[in-house]
C-alpha cells in the first residue's frame, strides 16, 4: 500500500513535468511556436517582425527572449532556441560552431549625450579618446568645463563589441567607465546625467538623449546606406539549416522579403 502511494506520487510528479512535452507534439494542433533568443538590441526589431507576421501566418507564434548576443549564439549552437539573435558579427571562436547566418538588418550605433550638452559633433578619434580615457573633459571638445562620465555596455555585449570594433579600441575601455546592462540602462544613465556620453542602437533612440554626429555625419539610416556613417553593425539571425522546421524557414525568408524589410526600414537599415 505504502509503495503504491509512492508510485502514485512519483507518477503525478512525472506527469506534471512531462505534460508540456507531450502537448507540444500533439498532431491535431496546426499551430507552431518558433523560439527566438539573444541580443537585446535585435529583440525590439524581432517584436515588430512577430507582430506583423501574426497577420501573415496566424498559426505561428514567435517567442522572443532578449538575453544577450552571446546567449543567442550559444542557444542556436546548442539547439535551446531555433533561432538566435546577435547584434555583432561572430567572433572567430564562434564561426567554428558552423552556424548558418542570415543578416536581417543593419543598425547604426548612435553616440548619445544629454540633450543639454552643447557638443553635437565628434570625430571618431575624439570618441576613441573619450572611451580610452585620453579625453576627460568636455572643455576639450568645445563643451562646458565638466568631467566626462563615460557610459558603456557590459563586456560581451554585441553593441559594445560592434562599437569598440568600429571606433577602434577593442577591449581598451577606460577602467573607470560606468557599465550598464541593456540599451535601456545606458539611455537612462545618459538621460539622467548632463556630463554623460553613451552609445545605443539607433532604433532605440528617443528624445531623452541627443545623438551627436560622427565625423560630421548624422546618425541616420540613410547615412549608413551610403556608407558615410561609420559606427554600424549587422543584426544577425543564427540557425542550423538542417534542423529547422519548414515553418521557421518560411519565417526566415519572410524577414528578408520586401514585406519584412519594409518593417526594418522604419528604424533600421534594410539589407537589400
Amino acid at each position: 500500500m505504502k509503495r503504491l502511494l509512492v508510485l502514485i506520487c512519483a507518477a503525478a510528479v512525472l506527469g506534471l513535468t512531462a505534460a508540456p512535452v507531450f502537448s507540444g507534439g500533439s498532431p491535431e494542433s496546426e499551430t507552431y511556436t518558433i523560439e527566438v533568443t539573444g541580443s537585446t538590441s535585435v529583440a525590439p526589431l524581432m517584436e515588430q517582425f512577430a507582430d506583423a507576421y501574426r497577420d501573415v501566418r496566424p498559426e505561428v507564434t514567435i517567442n522572443i527572449s532578449g538575453t544577450g548576443s552571446g546567449d543567442g549564439i550559444t542557444g542556436a549552437n546548442t539547439g535551446v532556441a531555433e533561432l538566435g539573435m546577435s547584434s555583432r558579427n561572430l567572433r572567430s571562436a564562434e564561426i567554428g560552431f558552423g552556424l548558418d547566418v542570415l543578416t536581417v538588418a543593419v543598425d547604426a550605433i548612435a553616440v548619445v549625450v544629454h540633450p543639454d550638452n552643447p557638443v553635437s559633433d565628434l570625430t571618431v578619434e575624439q570618441v576613441r579618446g573619450i572611451y580610452t580615457g585620453e579625453i576627460t573633459s568636455w572643455a576639450e571638445l568645445g563643451g562646458d568645463d565638466s568631467q566626462i562620465s563615460v557610459v558603456s555596455r557590459e563586456p560581451g555585449s554585441g553593441t559594445r563589441g560592434a562599437f569598440e570594433g568600429a571606433v577602434g579600441f577593442v577591449d581598451e575601455l577606460l577602467a573607470g567607465a560606468i557599465e550598464f546592462d541593456g540599451t535601456g540602462g545606458v539611455r537612462a544613465a545618459v538621460a539622467g546625467n548632463s556630463q554623460a556620453i553613451g552609445y545605443i542602437s539607433l532604433g532605440s533612440m528617443n528624445p531623452e538623449v541627443k545623438a551627436v554626429s560622427v565625423n560630421g555625419v548624422e546618425a541616420k539610416a540613410e547615412r549608413v546606406v551610403d556608407g558615410s556613417y561609420a559606427v554600424a553593425r549587422p543584426f544577425l539571425i543564427l540557425y542550423r539549416e538542417a534542423q529547422i522546421d519548414p515553418e521557421t524557414k518560411t519565417f526566415l525568408d519572410w524577414m528578408v522579403s520586401a514585406e519584412g524589410q519594409a518593417i526594418v526600414s522604419q528604424n533600421y537599415v534594410p539589407v537589400q
Partner: peptide
C-alpha cells in the same frame, strides 16, 4: 565617488553575454 563593480554584479551583468572560459 568612484564607480565599482561587485562580484555578484559581474556575474549578473555578463552571464548572458559570456561563453567558453569567460
Amino acid at each position: 565617488t568612484d564607480s565599482v563593480r561587485t562580484m555578484t554584479a559581474t556575474i549578473a551583468l555578463e552571464m548572458g553575454y559570456s561563453s567558453g572560459r569567460h
